[in-house]
Amino acid sequence: MMKFGAAIGMTLLGCVGLPGMSEAHFQMLYPGESARQSNSGAFDLFAIFTHVFHGAPSMAMAPPRALYMLKQRGDEGKPEKVDLLKQAEKFEWLGSEKSGVAAYKVSLPSAQMRSLGDYVFVLEPEPYLEATEDKYIQQFTKTVVNVGGMPGNWDKVLGLPAEIRPLNKPYANWTGGVFRGVVLARGKPAPFAEIEVEYVNRKPDGATKLWAGEPQVTAPHPALGPMSIRADATGAFAIGLPRAGWWGIAALDVGPVKKHLGKKLSQDAVIWVQATDIK
């Protein structure tokens, strides 16, 4: 187990500390591996609302408002949209708790995931009432999977209420590299957006519905678990990727809708990035 503080090496643009920030909720949209081949076979995509660094608590998801993928091979043509709601299956996610919460799984057969190109998975969830903060949280989430190395629509702006546009392919990052992105609200840059970054400390195990194994990283200080940064004046940010695995990036309260059912609503943007060791 490594000491997180020694390795973190975050590269921050326009960074400031954010004392007193609330806990880092993260809407996972987890495919296992983001860089795949045409013969990699079937896999499950897991939608879990949780805290990925500490592993708990996890929150119950309502049926998503939208869950789809946008597939494009190469730089010609338009992305093909595939609605995944009909393929979504509710399950009880345990994480590290004794009782489960509602989460969702999409089983993707190999025939659906064997063509070259990018597959941008998008989840638009129902707002979640975080009672301890007396507000709703709605995290618009993107995960990009590539098949075969031919790029497509990984950097396309979708115009979501809250969105992170990647400036690096989220599936093609060496450990120790830098990932860059731009925070957007309805397609427009969100200056100085508040951003949380967390390492997925344990992988979700689809078979047991538990986190797999032991946490990989120990944070020697609370500020090094869920980490907070700011976008710059153009909405752009950059983070280092000091360890292989999945990293979650969430830009908070950037969407235009601020109220839901009489309470405050935070429309967040989440994107998932996978770092791979050089061997």
Partner: peptide, 8 residues
């Protein structure tokens, strides 16, 4: 299917 790493 075939193409190039830059999307061509």
């Amino acid at each position: 299917e075939a193409g190039y790493s830059d999307g061509a």
